[in-house]
């Protein structure tokens, strides 16, 4: 039983980083595929499409920061806390990156047709980013309470 708790503790430690990175990979890939298609159809503004497709990469950075904040010797006393915070924060980052990628793909699709709505079309992706920031900040706050 102790071994399982210890394993979960280590998973919680590395979870925000790994799950955030998985989410970023998928999100950037979805938005990047949309950007590649938009390059076919447009004469200008290619840089901004590629720029948007990198938006979901921020979740990986948040994951790294949370991982460092949680980084400590894993013991049976703190393993459950690390698992709870790390895995839940990781899942939040992963899903936010995937859905942000989809929002970015839609933004690219519509701004290709009407370039003047480019800024407004990014609002949904920015809102999703906001939720990722919540998960990130409160993971940092809560991590202070986990015994070292």
């Amino acid at each position: 039983m102790d071994n399982l708790i210890m394993a979960l503790g280590w998973a919680g430690l590395y979870g925000p980083m790994a799950l955030g990175a998985i989410g970023s990979m998928i999100g950037c890939s979805l938005a990047g595929q949309a950007a590649a298609g938009a390059l076919l159809e447009t004469e200008t503004g290619h840089g901004r499409y590629i720029g948007i497709s990198a938006m979901p990469s921020s979740q990986s950075i948040y994951g790294i920061v949370v991982m460092f904040a949680l980084n400590r010797d894993v013991t049976p006393e703190n393993a459950a806390g690390l698992a709870g915070i790390g895995l839940l924060c990781g899942l939040a980052l992963m899903f936010s990156a995937i859905y942000q990628g989809r929002s970015c793909a839609s933004a690219i699709n519509v701004s290709k047709i009407r370039p003047e709505i480019f800024g407004m079309s990014l609002a949904p992706a920015a809102i999703v980013e906001g939720f990722a920031v919540f998960a990130f900040i409160f993971a940092l706050v809560i991590s202070a309470g986990v015994p070292a």
């Binding site: 979805l30 949309a34 590649a36 298609g37 076919l40 699709n109 290709k112 047709i113």
Partner: peptide, 12 residues
């Protein structure tokens, strides 16, 4: 399958 590249590559 999803077609992100194809759908954004289609004209209006």
């Amino acid at each position: 399958a999803d077609y992100y590249t194809l759908v954004t590559g289609l004209p209006w």
